[in-house]
Design a protein around this nucleic acid. Structure first.
Lengths: 127, 127, 127, 127
DNA sequence: GTGGTCTAGACCACA
DNA sequence: GTGGTCTAGACCACG
């Protein structure tokens, strides 16, 4: 039997991913306060317990810290930021390379195809 | 309001994607018979109509052809195969570039990071 | 055994044909909104899914475009219009020639008969 | 309300049409015996009464004649044959011209388009 | 058996 | 409201 559909990564991790990306993009700055558990639960249409678990996860990853009575904040740690960015980058690259290998491409071809694509879109924007 | 989760690509397209990848990988050869609509429906835990729609989609894309009373087959057309492979490649690259841009990387940095990653893993395999 | 009767062209295609003819005749102008799926289903005494399929077909043919939440529209593309008209013409001619051949006429005779008919009706109108 | 689908010409007339075409094509010769009502009913998947009505219609049109105790035969009348052929031809041409006019073509253009089509298919067969 | 069509009815996403 | 997707289940046509 083939696998089913309906992507299965737990919601609390999907939410953590999203917040991580917001940090790396700069939509969330170091030191910023995250929405309260309840706010975030409403915004994201999930259960507050799920958000709670996401925030715990972010703490465990060293990305956020909760301050009793004040809320949860992005840690003010440049090293964390750099590392987070590197991690996301690495994960994306790993996945990309894995899939391209699956499509039968060699390392060299992957780089060539990427370069060609970037040149193509660059030219389009030059028009 | 933030977007919700799992706003999934329609099942019939996910299934088409999966079949396309099987063809490009060589798990399905040109001329191979796909599972019957009913078989595939059971394998994939979806309704036969959904599979029907997938097969119709594959036919519209020129990837498969249905022979009434016999089944649905991968078209024996090398040109199709080449094009399909190119399309999947392009889509993966587009998505990769999109995400990397979202992480704040410039075109140049994307290429550098990829090259670095490939060198690193290459050295590991050389060990 | 002789063939049965009324082995009809699928309803969703008959409906597409009808709409195409309305466009070519000018009953539907480029950019016009088609009746909503539900309206058309009632007007035509068919299931909404059947209309949906018709509209999907028209979209695949490049004749219509669906705008989620707004409706389905005749594409505003003169090239499409010209091509559609040519296609309908060709199909009618093919069918006509096929039937006339079946009645035992040669290509030359078909043209002669048509010319005679047109002259006859022209004279009638001159009266 | 738009018209419904499911073509409505009565079966007994559809069957008469079919027989007429067989005569004009020469599949049925003058003087040939038509299948018995029962045979034809089985062949055509219709009720014997329907066939009976078809044969009556063919008699009324002067195309067939029933001989008590022997069956129904194509009338041995060359004039009838010529006229029948002319009628079918005329009907097809009328319909064709009607539709082409509906597509916006002038008499002259109809002839030109037909000639072009015949030349095109002729060349293909010359290949 | 196969794929193809159609219906009925549900729910979702967009706006 | 709109179109889009999915399910359930029926029936047909081809071979």
């Amino acid at each position: 039997m083939t696998e089913s559909f309906a992507s299965t990564r737990p919601i609390y991790l999907q939410l953590a991913d999203r917040i991580n990306r917001q940090i790396v993009r700069g939509d969330l700055k170091l030191g910023d306060k995250l929405p309260s558990v309840r706010e975030m639960a409403i915004e994201s249409n999930v259960n507050p317990n799920t958000v709670q678990r996401t925030y715990r996860e972010l703490e465990a990853m060293g990305v956020a810290e909760s301050r009793r009575g004040q809320g949860t904040f992005v840690r003010e740690d440049v090293h964390m930021f750099t590392e987070l960015k590197e991690n996301l980058k690495r994960e994306e690259i790993e996945e990309f390379v894995r899939v391209m290998h699956e499509l039968g491409l060699q390392d060299q071809e992957i780089q060539t195809s990427l370069a060609a694509f970037l040149n193509r879109t660059k030219e389009e924007n030059d028009d």
